[in-house]
Write a protein that binds this DNA or RNA. Structure first.
Lengths: 255, 255
DNA sequence: CCGACCGTTCGATTATCCCGAATTTTATGT
DNA sequence: ACATAAAATTCGGGATAATCGAACGGTCGG
């Protein structure tokens, strides 16, 4: 799936993780199914499952294995590690109510944008915005807003690591264009995503900082073109998001 | 921490998991800190971290390691595996608004009660009710409600595996008392937790089923004694929870 | 009641992980 | 700015521990 030609680290742990990923992909599975799909003996898979089960990384119902609660617990810890992350939950909901558009809070981790909260009113998010999913920073509204606040050096590193893949024809794909875009964002105080990672998907994002230079994450609202691109709409929406972020930053500084 | 005198399974995977747990416990750490705490050479720990990092189970900022987004993604999958789980989110929020008390949705996994959603209005939950945390089934409101719906055989297995630990003086600690309690719950249609796992903490729980005998999980509302124990209050609250569950079951059957 | 399938257990072989020392990088104090 | 210290990371040999295949036992369907 991903580019794994690299040294690969500890093989045992890697295999255990591969099992977890398969379980995720298929919403659980039985031993033989996994064994066949990974082209390994059943006994090996069973060993991994038994170990993972001991720590509740997987649970067993009859002869069916699924992802377990310990993953939920650890994953949730990712969202509560930082006071700002916890506080962001409320503000994401509030932003949704004010803007009337799908709202998200995302942070930068390992050079990608990770969604920590999404509020959409209707049933829970599209696949591409599900919790923990990682999107590129350079072609999302939150991502660009965050990049604009990071020191030049970090931006460099991130681009080096992940490149600037063009996911639609609107994507920024070269270094200079990105630099220009980032300073434009710093000027006007918000970032715009014009269908740069998904067709028809527009968004406005603003980064939140603890103090200048110390980025916590970013908020954004997304919707179809007509809801965002109209100049008046855009200015109005941008103000809404910025106001939310300002309040967020204030409250965070008092927490 | 937990009773790990058992065979222990794959040692490498177990160590990797131990690293993750330490990271969770300390909200991230550096290599030497982990190495010392686990009484293992730094190089070994580094190997584990490198492997976990490759899969984004941990992320590295400078020389500081923390839990990574992939855990959030997998953990979230636990909550979205089942249509009922997804649907429960809305209903937990709705229940909170109707009852005015902390509301939770929990499911049975591996013989324990696992919290999938908690809504409390204020800042996110007390430690004992954080997402993914596992509580006993026999001394919580949701837990008992769920047990009451499970076949006798499963109840037997669960009690055998986890015992009936008494966490307060009100806890049920013997098999007969539990059986009696469960049939009382089946009669009146809801379970009550009278400070059985935490002092001062009372709750009312109702199990939700896909069809008779097929339990999805359970909802509960919790609060201080005066808000729950008063006979009128109790009846009123129980009706609120039951109504919510009824609607939930209806909507689930249509989904 | 019998047969086939699947999950689980067990022991030997060898690949692989652990370790400790060497190296490079980062931080600190003068 | 330099020297010193501490930490992270890399590396290779040796021994442990994971992998594998076969045998066992349980379960479902005919």
């Amino acid at each position: 799936m991903t580019d794994d030609d690299e040294p690969a680290g500890l093989k045992t742990t890697a295999t255990s993780i591969a099992v977890l990923k398969l379980l995720e992909e298929h919403d659980g599975a039985r031993v033989s199914e996994l064994a066949e799909r990974m082209d390994k003996p059943k006994s090996t898979i069973h060993g991994h499952l038994a170990t993972l089960k001991r720590e509740q990384f997987v649970v067993q119902e009859g002869d069916f294995y699924s992802l377990g609660p310990e993953l939920l617990r650890l994953g949730n810890k990712v969202r509560t590690r930082d006071t700002g992350y916890v506080l962001a939950r409320t503000f994401t909901e509030r932003l949704f109510e004010e803007a009337g558009l799908r709202s998200v809070f995302a942070v930068e981790m390992g050079g990608r944008a990770v969604f920590l909260y999404t509020v959409s009113g209707e049933k829970m998010g599209w696949a591409h915005e599900q919790l923990g999913n990682r999107l590129y920073l350079h072609n999302t509204a939150v991502g660009k807003a965050i990049l604009a606040e990071l020191p030049e050096r970090r931006v460099e590193q991130i681009v080096e690591r992940w490149g600037l893949p063009g996911e639609t024809e609107n994507s920024i794909t070269d270094r200079e264009a990105l630099t220009a875009e980032l300073s434009r964002i710093r000027e006007r105080g918000y970032a715009v995503n014009r269908a740069e990672n998904f067709d028809e998907l527009y968004g406005i994002g603003v980064a939140a900082t603890r103090k200048p230079g110390d980025v916590v994450g970013g908020f954004s609202v997304t919707g179809p073109a007509h809801a965002v691109t109209d100049p008046d709409q855009e200015a109005e929406l941008a103000r809404t998001v910025r106001d939310a972020v300002t309040e967020f930053e204030l409250e965070l500084s008092l927490a």
